[in-house]
């Protein structure tokens, strides 16, 4: 069963993403490369989503059922951004609107028992913040936060959400391997939109419906600004910058993972 989980979570999604990246490698027009990169991220995730969850009912019966639709909308909107180039104001407005609507769709089942205003506001704000910080800075930090979220979700919330988080980490890991020795993943605006939508949605579903532990999740979010610090401390030396980013992000991610794993082991099956 563990082998089957590994195949669903890591092998097939990363293989699908790598296949899409290979197609992008053959493209001569550099304008389309970020879009193919975004497509590889989305396709890799959807392969894992199909194998693990496999429910494409529309309208969805569960919050996680909104993921394919959210990915498609974000991919289309920000692919246009990568091609045509939105102004900064329009991009931020769209990111804000899609963060709020994504949070609202995921929290929709809770609306039956009242308006979860505080949860909606907090979720939208964190989703938007995550997006703004990570947009255009997609390296090891995004990968580490995704991997940390997979561990925290699987051990303190839901195995399925942990697996879906693992799919995102596997796909981003595939990007890092494909682009090695460069440690920057050329996701573009569309790829960041897809990756952030998956990450923020899974974190929100975990907290709203699976009682995922809050402290480790907040620690994961503390890793996100490592990108800013890395750029400042790296003094324009790309490899040093990415090394610092990775090292700074690894600290909160490792602490969050350790807390989550310790809590899991205390309730051993």
């Amino acid at each position: 069963m563990l082998l089957s989980m590994a195949r669903e979570t890591i092998l097939w999604p990363s293989a699908a993403a790598l296949a899409a990246m290979m197609l992008g490698f053959l493209l001569r027009d550099a304008r389309f490369k970020p879009i193919v990169s975004a497509l590889a991220t989305g396709a890799g995730f959807l392969v894992g989503y199909t194998l693990i969850y496999g429910n494409f009912a529309f309208p969805p019966i569960e919050a996680q059922g909104w993921l394919p639709a959210l990915l498609a909308v974000n991919f289309l909107v920000f692919s246009f951004d990568d091609l045509a180039g939105f102004s900064r104001k329009i991009r931020i407005a769209l990111q804000g609107a899609l963060s709020i609507s994504g949070s609202a769709l995921i929290l929709l089942p809770l609306f039956k028992t009242g308006f979860p205003a505080l949860q909606l506001a907090a979720a939208s704000l964190l989703w938007f913040g995550l997006w703004i910080v990570l947009d255009g800075r997609n390296g090891p930090v995004l990968f580490l936060v995704a991997a940390g979220n997979a561990i925290v979700s699987a051990t303190t919330g839901s195995t399925m959400l942990g697996q879906l988080g693992g799919v995102l980490a596997a796909v981003l890991g595939g990007h890092l391997a494909f682009n090695f020795p460069k440690s920057h993943i050329p996701l573009g605006h569309a790829g960041t939109a897809v990756a952030v939508t998956i990450l923020a949605s899974l974190m929100l579903i975990g907290h709203a419906y699976a009682e995922t532990a809050l402290i480790p999740s907040l620690l994961l979010l503390c890793a996100v600004p490592a990108d800013f610090l890395g750029k400042h401390l790296g003094r324009n030396r790309k490899n040093l910058e990415m090394l610092i980013c990775g090292a700074l992000a690894l600290i909160p991610v490792a602490i969050a993972s350790a807390i989550a794993i310790r809590s899991y082991l205390a309730q051993e099956y």
């Binding site: 919050a63 089942p109 839901s158 579903i205 709203a208 699976a210 099956y269």
Partner: peptide, 18 residues
């Protein structure tokens, strides 16, 4: 078993909050 109850009540299976 509390841990199993939590797993079953979560999004993996019954999804009790939804």
């Amino acid at each position: 078993f509390d841990k199993r109850n939590k797993d079953l009540l979560g999004p993996d299976f019954f999804n009790a909050k939804q």
